[in-house]
Amino acid sequence: MLRPGEDLLKVEDRLWLLTAATGKGVYDFAFDRFFACRRPYVLPDEPIEVVARAGAWPDYAERYRELEAQGVRLVHSPEQHLLATELPRWYPLLEDLTPRSRWFDTPPDARTVEAQLGWPVFLKGARQTSRHRKSLSIIEGPEAFRQAMDAYAQDDILHWQQVVCRELRPLRRVDDTQGADALPRSFEFRTFWWRQQLVGFGPYWWQGTPYALTPQEERDALALAGEAARRVVLPFLVVDVAQEVSGRWIVIECNDGQESGYVGVSPFALWQRVLDVERERAG
């Protein structure tokens, strides 16, 4: 049932987890160093609901079916996973909260993009960017777009994804010291929502110059993220929000909490809050 490197454990007798080390400090967390964990030799007779923290599976639907056949049901179905991770799925629910976007099953030409959105645009795959590379993300005009499309065709992360073009909004910057081809750091924050309740909140750009919110900014950011979580109704959702230069807050993207890195969110505090929610639900 388990693949090499995977571990199935029950945390504090409240939460089942399927974990695997990825080698990425921003993602991995040693649960058994901070919580009471047990690894059962025999699974319960009834199917168990499990949260995966094993990295991003390229074959999520297949892995879901494999585990379900063994009585292990991931917290997100394949359809829920796609809703959380792919912009064309969640965008219709959040269209008024996020930059105007268009997506294409095949790479569009520059003229089509210009007619629908104008320049500049933010370019990405339906699920993600390529390692936060500025040259493949912030596109100023037709020639830059053609060069980016050539690069997309060769990129191991982007070539299989739908192409998404987004209106480039003027975001509040933190600093621009990340390198020549790195995305400029914006005033952006990651939120984790477990069963519609906030369980984690912190800066998206956790490296470099620290930045923080005023109390009013925090209330505004969390109000927006909470509205997005209310609309995209999923058990374990990540909502990233950022502030524009004008002071307006916008949704940057959504993700599956199973696959998302902690960035500036405390993993211990996050999982403690998840366990608290589960304890409250159990009465």
Rank of each mutant, 00 (worst) to 15 (best):
L2H: 07
R3P: 06
P4K: 05
E6D: 11
D7S: 08
L9Y: 04
V11F: 04
L18V: 05
T19G: 12
T19N: 09
A21C: 14
K24S: 13
Y27T: 05
Y27V: 07
D28S: 09
F31G: 03
F34S: 13
F34H: 14
A36S: 13
R38A: 13
V42E: 15
E46G: 07
E49W: 06
A52H: 10
A52V: 07
A54R: 04
A56Q: 09
W57Y: 10
D59S: 09
A61G: 07
A61R: 06
E62W: 09
E62S: 09
Y64Q: 01
R65N: 09
E68L: 01
A69P: 01
G71E: 02
V72L: 13
R73P: 03
S77N: 09
P78C: 06
E79A: 12
Q80F: 01
H81Y: 15
H81P: 00
H81Q: 14
L83Q: 14
A84F: 02
E86Q: 14
R89M: 14
W90D: 03
P92Q: 03
L97S: 07
R100W: 02
S101C: 12
S101M: 07
W103T: 04
F104D: 00
D105T: 06
T112M: 12
A115Q: 07
Q116A: 15
W119D: 12
F122E: 08
F122L: 10
K124S: 11
A126W: 06
R127A: 13
R127M: 09
R127G: 05
H132Q: 11
L136A: 06
I138G: 04
I138Q: 14
I139G: 08
A144H: 07
R146F: 01
Q147R: 14
Q147K: 11
A148Y: 00
M149L: 14
A151K: 06
A151C: 06
Y152H: 10
Q154P: 04
D155S: 01
D156I: 12
D156F: 12
C165P: 15
R173C: 10
D175H: 07
L183D: 07
E188Q: 11
F189N: 01
R190K: 09
W194R: 03
Q196I: 03
G200P: 03
F201K: 00
Y204M: 11
W206I: 15
A212R: 10
L213E: 13
A223I: 03
A223E: 14
A223K: 08
R230P: 01
V233Y: 05
S246R: 05
R248L: 10
W249L: 03
I252W: 01
E253Q: 08
C254G: 02
N255L: 11
N255D: 15
Q258R: 05
S260H: 15
V263A: 15
V263R: 13
G264E: 11
G264C: 11
L270I: 11
V274T: 11
D276S: 05
V277I: 10
E278I: 04
E278V: 02
E280D: 06
R281K: 15
